[in-house]
Simulated assay, not measured.
Amino acid sequence: MLAKAVDTVPAHDSVEGGLAFEPKWDGFRAIVHFDGSSVEIESRGSKPLTRYFPELVEAFARLLPSPCVIDGEIVVRSGPAGNERLDWEALSARIHPAESRVRRLAAETPAMFVAFDLLGLGEPGLDASSLVDRPFGERRAALEELVAPLGDPVHLTRITTDTDVARGWLTEFEGAGLDGVVAKPLAAAYAPGKRIMLKVKHHRTADVVVLGYRVHKSGVGVGSLLLGLYDDEGELRNVGGASAFSDARRLELVEELEPLVQRDDSGELVKGETERSRFSAGKDVSFVRLEPTRVVEVRYDQMEGDRFRHTAQFDRWRPDRDARSCTFDQLEIPVAYDLSKVLV
């Protein structure tokens, strides 16, 4: 079941039967299948995740009292006691082809599972019976009875029907690395693939320098803009990209950016390459370099270190801004919030 983005936390009574609110966890969405002895973990898109999280497989097999199917989020936490937060980079590193690396990371950066829905439940020795047609309120009650006693690394997500409390979470929990609030109709059945839930994420703007662009995968037009900000040392650093342009807009951008394209003495385009990661292996990471003088205002949700956590959205050109004035200082830094205070 998916979520539709909305601008503000809706009122509890804005839908029939009421809404329940949960923190929005920033991890790997996962469905856990336990048949009473073996455990399988799959992603939202049904990709197998079992081999990457052996510590969770062991924990589920040891802790779960009966067959079940649980919907939740795999996350990794880091930081000193009293100042922990979600660590997306450490979580991403857990997806590795080498078995030895998987085992080492399971010990060094162990994951935990935050449960937020129960899709199936059975008695010991029997197959899990589907709960997807039950209202969410009933599924949540059954989830609490099943998960609450288990303990680390299996946690139950917080929940409230108080709209004001949920709006407070939106601000406070960002400091622990969470990225919003989810609203779920208490009377709704589980609807796979449908956007029954509502999600509210953080939206901010920043003025950034356009470093270059990648050609669209079609081979025509701008696929994405590469964005940068100046650090305290005066170095221009890549902070992410902006994309999601229409076909017409991709072609327009090529013309708009042509005066900024860097060329060598023979008139050929000067190209660069961004750093490769395990997610870009085999992909074309080249881009057309531009003179770093054009400023664009983009919308973003949050930062992960010194980069935009997700792809930013193009808002407007800022011809009134000097590129050198686009620094990290303009970014809003959330107040730190200890992740242990979010966990149940």
Rank of each mutant, 00 (worst) to 15 (best):
W169G: 07
L290R: 09
S277D: 12
G282V: 08
L253I: 15
E235D: 14
T157A: 09
V285M: 14
K201I: 13
H96T: 12
S286I: 14
G18N: 09
T160R: 06
D232P: 05
R321M: 12
T205H: 13
G122E: 02
V285N: 15
V181I: 14
R294Q: 13
V69C: 07
G234T: 05
F60D: 08
V102Q: 12
L269N: 05
R85T: 10
A188Y: 03
D231H: 06
A188L: 11
L63M: 00
L19D: 06
E123T: 15
V32I: 13
I70E: 06
R62H: 11
F113W: 10
V208W: 15
E273L: 14
L225T: 07
I70Y: 04
G122S: 01
G223V: 10
R299G: 11
L170S: 02
C326A: 10
V288L: 11
A183T: 08
V209D: 09
D284W: 01
K271H: 15
P185Q: 02
R29G: 06
F53V: 06
E291T: 14
L225Y: 02
I95S: 03
Q313V: 01
Y52Q: 13
G212D: 01
V344I: 08
R324K: 12
E268G: 05
V335D: 14
A93C: 04
P185C: 06
M1C: 04
G18T: 04
D152P: 06
D231I: 02
A148P: 02
E174Y: 00
K184D: 03
A336P: 15
K201G: 04
S100I: 07
L225V: 04
E291M: 06
L339R: 03
L118T: 01
E40L: 01
G175E: 09
V209Y: 05
A141C: 05
A206K: 10
L236Q: 08
E89M: 09
M303L: 15
S340E: 12
T205E: 15
A242P: 06
E123M: 10
S38G: 00
P319I: 02
P67L: 03
V102S: 00
S46A: 11
R139F: 01
S130K: 02
D152W: 01
G193S: 08
A191W: 00
H12S: 11
V285D: 15
Y213M: 12
A141F: 08
G45A: 09
T327F: 11
G234I: 08
E138N: 07
H33C: 02
E252L: 10
R51Y: 01
E258S: 13
R289L: 14
M1T: 04
K194L: 14
E256G: 00
E297R: 15
V147T: 01
D322T: 08
V344L: 09
V285Q: 11
S224C: 11
E233H: 12
Y337E: 09
D179I: 11
G17Y: 08
F113P: 10
G79L: 11
E256C: 03
S224V: 03
V342W: 02
A323W: 04
D301A: 14
T293R: 13
L236Y: 03
A336M: 07
L63I: 01
G272L: 12
K201D: 03
D315P: 00
L131H: 00
A30W: 00
V261A: 09
S340K: 12
T50H: 10
E275Q: 10
F136I: 12
L229E: 07
R318V: 10
G221Q: 07
E291Y: 06
V215G: 11
F53T: 03
S43R: 02
